[in-house]
Structures are given as C-alpha cells and as structure tokens.
C-alpha cells in the first residue's frame, strides 16, 4: 500500500470534517465543520473546494454526485468519503499531534497542561 503524503493543517481539518459528516459530507457541511474546527479563524468556501480537489487528486478522498434536491435549485451535491489512504493519513496526523501535545506538556509542566485543558474545556461550541 502506498504511503500517504504528509498532510497540511488545513487538509487535516477537511479530512476530519469528512470523517465526522460521514454520508452527508458535501461542500456546505464540510465547510461549516471546518469553520467550527478552525475557530476563531475564518474559512472561505473556496479554500475548502481547493483542498477537496487536492485531497481527491492524492487519492485520500473520493467523490460522487448525489441526486438533485429542490433546496439547491434542482442541483446535485458532490459528496465525499474518506478512502483507506485518507484514513491512514489522518490517523498518522492525529498520532503526531498527540506526540507534540505530550512533549509540550512534558516541557512546560503539568500545571500548564491542566490549565490549558480547563481553558479548552470551557471553549464554547
């Protein structure tokens, strides 16, 4: 099996959004989930499209057109799903992020980690 490329932060966000949306992952839902994950940073819909195309080209996600719906003016959605390569890439990114977190917590101390954890927990949404 081919080794997936290293993911950029935005690519990680988009892949996570697709993972959480499951069968309902398309432009709008992916964008709103990415916006939620990337807060307080603003994310444009265009940036999500560009990243989705790139991820599809890399073989990390695949897409298909769904049936047209009236709320979209009779237009179809392009739905996305994670491929095995994408799941592996996301898993590797999560492991790396965890390692980074643990290393930082080790260096800056347990108090900092506890305080940061509390602050994280208080974050709305």
């Amino acid at each position: 099996m081919a080794r997936p490329d290293t993911l950029g932060q935005f690519e990680q966000l988009v892949l996570t959004a697709i993972l959480t949306q499951r069968e309902d992952a398309y432009g709008i839902t992916i964008h709103s989930k990415v916006q939620e994950l990337a807060r307080p940073r603003k994310v444009s819909l265009g940036a999500v499209y560009v990243t989705l195309d790139r991820l599809e080209d890399k073989g990390l996600v695949s897409s298909w057109l769904s049936d047209p719906t009236p709320e979209r003016g009779g237009r179809a959605k392009r739905c996305y799903r994670l491929e095995a390569l994408g799941e592996r890439a996301l898993e590797e990114s999560a492991v790396t992020a965890k390692r980074i977190w643990e290393t930082i917590a080790q260096v800056w101390g347990k108090d900092w980690a506890r305080q940061w954890g509390k602050q994280w927990g208080r974050e709305p949404g």
Binding site: Y26, R72, K77, R78
Partner: peptide
C-alpha cells in the same frame, strides 16, 4: 464543477 458549486452557493 458547475453543478455542485452553484448548488452549494444557492443552499
């Protein structure tokens, strides 16, 4: 990509 982008914009 016209179909899906126009649909997303309308939604």
């Amino acid at each position: 990509c016209r179909e899906e982008v126009l649909g997303d914009l309308q939604e």
